[in-house]
Design a protein around this nucleic acid. Structure first.
Length: 845
DNA sequence: GCAAGGTC
């Protein structure tokens, strides 16, 4: 029998650390095993996995896509291989002599599977050791103690349900992905992928685009009047009528009718109040944050799903908020709202709100959502507080959102007062002859009577609409009338957060993967821009799937799989039965698909080309396409190459996006360059090249490099790819150049820089204050200095403030930091020790 | 170089 220490295995390092702390009463020490943290106390060791540390895949002889028919993957063997070698080795080392092993992975299906993976690793090296399983929904003293006092067994059926999912996803995904990629000859980086989750997600986007394409706008009119109560100011009221069903309708679908009504309305100067309706509405605070609702709230602050999650993960790792991947919207019983509020009492930002929230008579009863799960609590602050300077501005904004959401869930209802006024207008006697003798106007006012939770959670709209107190029978003056012609609008595209919400509703993907799936669609060239729009490639892939493998773009596949997994977990079906059935279904898909390989491939290839096509080549009439050079830069080239060698340059920054707008002169679609915050519209590449060819270089001074010897001069130049620079007139013999901003009119002023004898430049952007760039050489030097500063911040442990201090001490960049003498530098910079400098230097290497 | 699911 093994008599070594007992081993506890958790799903992640963070959980291992906290569980060790709880079970050891804070006495656990950290040591390293194969580079992995192990927490040690008494006769115990605790180690964290990193989610799945083994993965399923086909044996290596199936690796070559061209050598293996995709259909062969259906019956190919599947292996489990370690994917995190260091953790697997550490587990093996620790398990070999363990006296007991406890699996403490997350309390959900995937956690059970991850637990089983750990179980198998342990069994490989230790056949006899007892392996038990503990389950807890949040890592708190009470839950963890209780779980470890009552250990349970691993649920192999539940884990098998997860394994069925793994295998089915792999086989369907790999076989169909390879088939599509091979059929369209898209191998290497540009393969064409499909899968159980990305398929339906993509179809969702494509379907919406189809609706938009098919949309036929309809004209309608709306009529408004400004009403005024003496001394109380005016308010806007809108014309309405009763439609066939007796409902209030504002849109007038008939133009003549609208004109007739408008004639009556504009010919009248008073309206009589017909009815006044007041009602009070309670506006309850929102439920606690799950991942989806958190992403939605962050998106209203203009963060992408991906970015919001990555910041939440950082805040979690730093200990400021709880685990950000959760479906749970009900706080666990362990969470004591009063205690958590108290943690914020002395906080500069949140103290007053916390105090106000605690100042109530009864016990605080937090809100709760519909979903209660067993794995993690809703996202909330831990009570461990960062100061503003510990976080970047964006991180702070996200942290504040999480804190305030928690505040909102323990705050009071808000109360609104709604006021609806209906007024009647009688047709004036001089009105043109119509069948209209009376029409009605309505106005809806709302006022926030009790701000309630809005006081601590200012992210929701609290806009009030003012409608004055009026009484029935009262006469109001009509001060102005308006008729507006409008059109019905096509349905809106899904934004990222709406997409994630819809995926959740359809039951596809998980809290941890939905935002990744959307990123994947971008990476694969299926969607572009934000809100995402599908490419022609995406349409072709969805069309091909709809015809031959509808399952892979249907949400039903997940629903069916979910049902099968439930059955496996309940012991009603076997893993082998479910996977065999799924394989048969895929086999039938391939029976149909194989004969259509060429058709499918042609269609996809045409769409791929359409996604790159700008318009006709002026020389050959073939298509001009956006292409990528061997060096990775983009340019415009002719599809007739090599017979036609016509090309146009594109800007060197960013990834080109082809817009719908077409240049009338050249029949070429315009191009936008996507480069994060530096995204800009390039326009028609032919126009840009022509402009540069016509524009003469503007000489502004002598070239500092070759001016005195060769007589080179500095000039403002425009390149054919649209960018501008200050360069030497002797180019390419002299390569001296300085950058200029891409946008804005460049003005050369009379002021001159004494040091460099160059004119000072001003950049005039239409939408901005003109920017005084100054002497281009001075400007470039400042820019370099700045860049070196931010370069210092790439060293871990150096923030903006420290970088500033270092620069003051004469350490301008990373190279200088590496050369610095640690002791001397520590002398010079406040609050920095020599060891810290040595750490930086080590990190910089 | 395929999926989706964990985690970082």
């Amino acid at each position: 029998m093994s008599r070594g220490p007992a081993l506890i295995i958790t799903e992640k390092d963070n959980a291992a650390r906290r569980i060790a702390e709880i079970l050891s009463g804070g006495t656990a020490d950290a040591e390293r095993e194969h580079g992995v943290n192990v927490y040690k106390w008494g006769g115990k060791r605790c180690i964290g996995l990193s989610g799945h540390v083994v993965g399923v895949d086909f044996p290596s002889e199936y690796n070559d896509w061209r050598d293996v028919e995709p259909v062969e993957l259906i019956d190919a063997p599947i292996e489990k291989q370690p994917t995190q070698q260091n953790i697997v080795s550490a587990i093996r080392t620790l398990a070999r002599h363990a006296s007991n092993v406890t699996i403490a992975t997350d309390y959900d299906r995937e956690g059970e599977l991850i637990g089983k993976e750990a179980y198998e690793l342990v069994r490989e090296v230790n056949e006899d050791v007892d392996i038990d399983r503990v389950r807890f929904s949040s890592i708190t003293d009470r839950e963890v103690q209780e779980a470890f006092d009552n250990p349970d067994e691993l649920d192999f059926d539940l884990a098998a349900a997860g394994e069925a999912r793994q295998v089915i996803d792999l086989i369907w995904g790999a076989a169909l992905t390879r088939f599509l990629s091979l059929s369209a000859r898209q191998l290497g980086d540009d393969f064409i992928s499909v899968g159980r989750v990305q398929g339906p997600t993509l179809k969702l986007i494509v379907d919406r685009e189809r609706e938009i394409d098919a949309f036929d706008p309809e004209d309608y009119w709306e009529l408004f009047a400004d009403l005024e109560k003496a001394d109380e100011g005016g308010f806007e009221a809108q014309y309405f009528y009763r439609d066939e069903d007796g409902n209030e309708a504002e849109r007038v679908w008939d133009g003549d009718r609208a004109e007739a009504v408008y004639e009556v309305l504009s010919g009248t100067d008073a309206a009589t109040v017909d009815s006044v309706n007041r009602r009070t509405r309670t506006d309850s605070p929102p439920a606690p944050f799950n991942t989806t609702q958190f992403i939605r709230a962050a998106s209203s602050l203009n963060y992408s799903a991906q970015r919001a999650m990555s910041m939440a993960e950082d805040l979690y790792t730093a200990g400021y908020i709880t685990y950000p991947r959760t479906d749970n919207t009900v706080y666990p019983e362990d969470l004591d709202p009063e205690e958590l509020l108290e943690a914020f009492l002395d906080d500069r930002t949140f103290g007053d709100d916390a105090e106000q929230l605690l100042d109530v008579e009864e016990a605080i009863e937090p809100t709760a959502g519909d979903e209660e799960t067993t794995d993690h609590p809703p996202i909330h602050p831990t009570g461990e507080r960062p100061t503003r300077s510990d976080l970047s501005e964006d991180e702070w904004e996200i942290y504040e959102l999480v804190v305030r959401r928690f505040f909102a869930t323990v705050a009071d209802d808000a109360t609104w007062e709604h006021l609806k006024v209906v007024a009647r207008v009688a047709a004036a006697t001089n009105a043109a002859e119509t069948d209209i003798d009376e029409l009605r106007l309505k106005a809806n006012g709302k006022r926030l009577v009790e701000a309630g939770y809005h006081d601590v959670y200012p992210y929701f709209n609290q806009q009030e609409t003012h409608v004055p107190d009026v009484e029935e029978g009262e006469s109001l003056a009509i001060t102005e009338t308006r008729i507006e012609d409008k059109q019905t609008q096509p349905p809106r595209r899904y934004g990222q957060s709406r997409l994630i919400e819809t995926m959740e509703k359809m039951g596809i993907g998980t809290k941890s993967t939905r935002h990744h799936t959307i990123e994947k669609l971008y990476d694969r060239g299926y969607i572009e821009s934000d809100p995402p729009r599908p490419t022609m490639l995406a349409r072709a892939v969805v069309e091909a799937a709809e015809e031959y493998a509808d399952q892979i773009v249907s949400e039903d596949m997940t629903a069916q799989l979910e049902a099968d997994m439930q059955a496996i977990a309940a012991g009603e079906t076997a893993y082998s039965e479910v996977t065999a059935e799924s394989k048969e279904m895929l086999q039938r898909v391939f029976d149909e698909l194989t004969d259509s390989r060429e058709d499918v491939g042609d269609h996809i290839q045409k769409s791929l080309k359409a996604d790159k096509t700008l318009g006709p080549c002026p020389e050959s009439g073939d298509d001009l396409l956006v292409r990528k050079s061997r060096h990775g830069s983009y340019f415009v080239g002719c599809d007739g190459y090599p017979d036609c060698t016509y090309t146009l340059p594109l800007p060197s920054t960013g990834k080109p996006l082809i817009l719908d707008e077409t240049c009338e002169d050249h029949e070429l679609r315009e191009v936008k360059m996507l480069a994060g915050r530096k995204t800009f519209t390039h326009g028609c590449p032919q126009c840009k090249a022509d402009e540069a060819d016509e524009e003469e270089d503007l000489v502004i001074g002598e070239c500092p490099d070759c001016g005195s010897e060769e007589g080179g001069e500095l000039a403002i130049k425009r390149l054919r790819n649209g960018s501008r620079l200050v360069g030497c007139t002797r180019y390419p013999d002299c390569e001296y150049s300085l950058p200029l901003p891409r946008r804005g009119e460049i003005e050369v002023t009379d002021a001159r820089c004494d040091e460099h004898d160059l004119p000072e430049l001003v950049i005039d952007n239409d939408d901005d204050e003109p920017w005084e760039l100054g002497c281009p050489i001075c400007n470039y030097r400042e820019y370099q200095a700045d860049r070196n500063g931010s370069e210092l911040e790439t060293v871990s442990g150096i923030g903006e403030k420290t970088a500033d201090k270092l620069k003051t001490a004469g350490v301008a960049d990373v190279a200088a930091l590496k050369d610095a003498d640690p002791d001397a530098l520590a002398e010079e910079v406040d609050g920095v020790g020599a060891d810290t400098v040595r750490n930086w230097q080590a990190d910089a290497d």
